[in-house]
């Protein structure tokens, strides 16, 4: 079987469009969960706000692309406020319950038949991504080579000798924008977390009563973290919708939120680069397992009596789940977390 192909594919994905969606969503979650201790189990809904805000804005209301982006960000803001106002004064678990329920409500509303004429119901919407791809600064005929990176008729190829990564014309643009966004938000996070504002957030994570006793309006800080994290979630939603060129309600299930958590825990919560590393590793492992198993079946390395190709998907998730459990046992701090910090968890 072709290991080179499997590796190339997995590496391609590990820094590709989907990984960027996970990284962005997890950056938002890192602010909320990693630094502030807010249990937001509705990050998928924040992504849905972005994705649907964009799609509805462009397709249903015929607005310019950038206005639709603003609508998506605004919707995420409003949702964070709606969820935060009643729950952030209460204990942490209330937010968890409310966000997980709200995420499900959002998904159900998106697939409801009542306004299926506008939202497309369970089929979702398409046709909103053209303005975005019209922004690509190079054309489909572009061809150049720079060291090991080359562009061939608008498609990007990175040749490492043994492995070759290839991206389509559109994926390349998604990656340019996506990596720019990831770096931008990682930079913002680095600045914020090392500021007095970030220090208060960490204090809230440790003990909000103590922080309150020091004259800080804890509610306002938590709300800011929830809103900003939600906005970054919406940006992840934009990228997700654009990379698929469609929105579908059933892609915004609770699973989506839990992938963000997996990415965050894998990389290391409360670490600036945790989400990025976690997303790359998660999506690399996912792809190498599914590609590897599929290839092994195709090449008859694994006989069909043991595993057939339809069983690969569930098995990969089973293996990833097992890996997650082992990670939590042997390296609970994640890839780049600080184990020392975990020892003081008094709760």
């Amino acid at each position: 079987m072709d290991w080179q192909f499997v590796f190339s594919q997995a590496l391609t994905q590990a820094i590709g469009p989907t990984m960027l969606v996970y990284a962005l969503g997890a950056i938002g979650l890192n602010l909320q969960f990693g630094y502030t201790g807010l249990l937001n189990f509705g990050q998928a809904a924040f992504a849905a706000m972005g994705a649907y805000g964009l799609a509805l804005g462009v397709v249903a209301w015929g607005l310019p692309f950038w206005w639709a982006v603003v609508i998506g960000l605004g919707a995420a803001c409003v949702m964070a406020l709606l969820l935060g106002i009643p729950t952030l004064r209460l204990r942490a678990d209330y937010l968890a319950i409310v966000t997980i329920a709200a995420a499900e409500i959002v998904r159900r509303l998106a697939r409801a038949t009542v306004w299926a004429d506008t939202t497309g119901g369970s089929d979702g919407m398409r046709g909103f991504s053209e303005p975005f791809f019209a922004l690509i600064p190079w054309d489909r005929e572009s061809t150049w080579t720079l060291l090991f990176v080359s562009m061939d008729s608008g498609r990007l190829a990175v040749d490492f000798g043994i492995f070759e990564l290839q991206y389509s014309y559109r994926d390349t643009w998604i990656m340019v924008v996506g990596w720019a966004l990831v770096l931008f938000f990682t930079g913002i996070m680095a600045l914020l977390i090392h500021s007095p504002w970030g220090r208060v957030l960490k204090g809230i994570r440790e003990d909000e009563e103590a922080v309150r006793s020091l004259g800080k309006n804890v509610f306002a800080f938590k709300m800011q973290a929830l809103v900003l994290g939600g906005i970054i979630g919406a940006v992840a939603g934009f990228l997700f919708a654009l990379s698929r060129a469609n929105v579908q309600p059933d892609t915004f299930t609770t699973d989506f939120t839990f992938y963000f958590y997996v990415v965050l825990i894998l990389g290391g919560a409360a670490r600036i680069f945790g989400p990025v590393l976690g997303a790359a590793l998660f999506w690399f492992l996912y792809n190498i397992l599914s590609q590897g198993l599929s290839q092994a079946i195709r090449a008859d390395v694994i006989p069909p009596s043991v595993l057939d190709s339809t069983q690969v998907g569930p098995l990969v998730f089973l293996l990833l789940g097992l890996g997650m459990v082992l990670l939590l046992i042997f390296r609970p701090q994640g890839l780049i977390g600080n184990k020392k910090e975990l020892l003081f968890d008094v709760r």
Binding site: L192, S195, G198, V200, K216
Partner: peptide, 9 residues
């Protein structure tokens, strides 16, 4: 001052 979110930047 740095406890205002925008000022943190």
């Amino acid at each position: 001052v740095g406890e205002r979110m925008w000022a943190g930047l």
